[in-house]
């Protein structure tokens, strides 16, 4: 074209016009607060005032002091356990719905899976306290049946209780993407594998599982990222040893009156989450290639 190509085609221009409200919205409500937190993390708190000299002191603290290291590690550990637990428990349920439930009953099943969302998360946490508690359902039954004399104490107010409660809360988020991935698998692929000589186990490992991988990866990411930042659950069922990094972030912003350190901890946690998620995606990338 002798007159040269226009810099922005009309389609691109109208596209930009269409996305710009969303973009501005995202910028204002997401990018701006994050930028503010980033800035805050490089300042320091001096009793009542913020010292605006930029410094890495908060990050040094966040990464070197044993308490923050340990809380971060514990949070990662709890989140990973929750992720593994939800995927391991969610997969068979999703598999059952995708392969065993007749198609006309599937909407009902999916609907039933979402029932826990009808109640507030706090109510569900308190229900777990009732179930796991000292005078709770499990202990009450076991004592009543004479199986144990003293109520078990190790089932509430520890990391296990946090993992259990979080797993229960996040299970539907794992089931749904796995179900979608399994449901999308062409049944003739499974028959083909069987036809080519596979028993159920090999077929599952070589066909079903790899093809369900995008759903499993989605489930893992969906569960892992938010749980690491959860602070209500550890606060209510975690007991003294079940606290997570988000509880410390809350403490820094409130009681400890050290918002800059809180900001540095929050960003460090974000960094750790991003890093682990990226490593995970890198490790499973071969299962995420485009399908047919």
């Amino acid at each position: 074209m002798p007159w040269g190509r226009p810099r922005i085609s009309p389609e691109a221009a109208s596209g930009l016009v269409l996305i710009s409200p969303t973009f501005i919205y995202a910028l204002l409500l997401l990018a701006t607060p994050i930028a503010a937190v980033v800035l805050l993390s490089f300042w320091t708190q001096d009793y009542l005032d913020l010292q605006r000299t930029l410094t890495l002191a908060n990050y040094q603290k966040a990464w070197s002091e044993p308490i923050y290291q340990s809380l971060m590690l514990r949070s990662v550990k709890i989140s990973l356990l929750v992720t593994v637990a939800t995927v391991l428990i969610g997969f068979p349920i999703a598999y059952y719905i995708a392969f065993m439930v007749p198609p006309r009953h599937r909407p009902i099943w999916l609907f039933l899976i979402t029932i826990p969302f009808w109640t507030s998360y706090l109510v569900r946490i308190f229900l777990w306290k009732v179930i796991l508690g000292y005078g709770g359902v499990i202990n009450g039954s076991l004592v009543g049946l004479g199986i144990i004399e003293e109520p078990l104490k190790f089932i509430l107010y520890n990391q296990g209780a946090v993992v259990l409660t979080l797993s229960h809360a996040w299970l539907p988020f794992a089931i749904l993407p796995i179900f979608v991935a399994l449901n999308k698998i062409d049944r003739s692929l499974l028959e083909a594998a069987e036809d080519l000589g596979d028993g159920p186990v090999r077929r599952f490992l070589h066909i079903t599982l790899p093809l369900a991988m995008p759903g499993i990866v989605a489930a893992a990411i969906i569960v892992f990222i938010p749980t690491i930042g959860d602070y209500v659950t550890p606060r209510l069922v975690g007991g003294p040893n079940g606290l997570m990094i988000a509880n410390m972030i809350e403490v820094q912003f409130k009681k400890a009156n050290n918002a800059p350190l809180g900001a540095a901890l929050a960003l460090s946690a974000m960094f750790v989450v991003t890093l682990i998620s990226l490593l995970f995606l890198l490790a499973v990338r071969k299962y995420l290639r485009p399908n047919q």
Binding site: E191, D198, L211, Q292
Partner: peptide, 20 residues
């Protein structure tokens, strides 16, 4: 005798080529 134990093989209508 299940399909995987039969001396038959099948070419499916949509070919069922494993996408992964």
């Amino acid at each position: 005798v299940p399909a995987n134990k039969r001396p038959t093989n099948m070419v499916f209508q949509n070919y069922a080529v494993f996408p992964h």
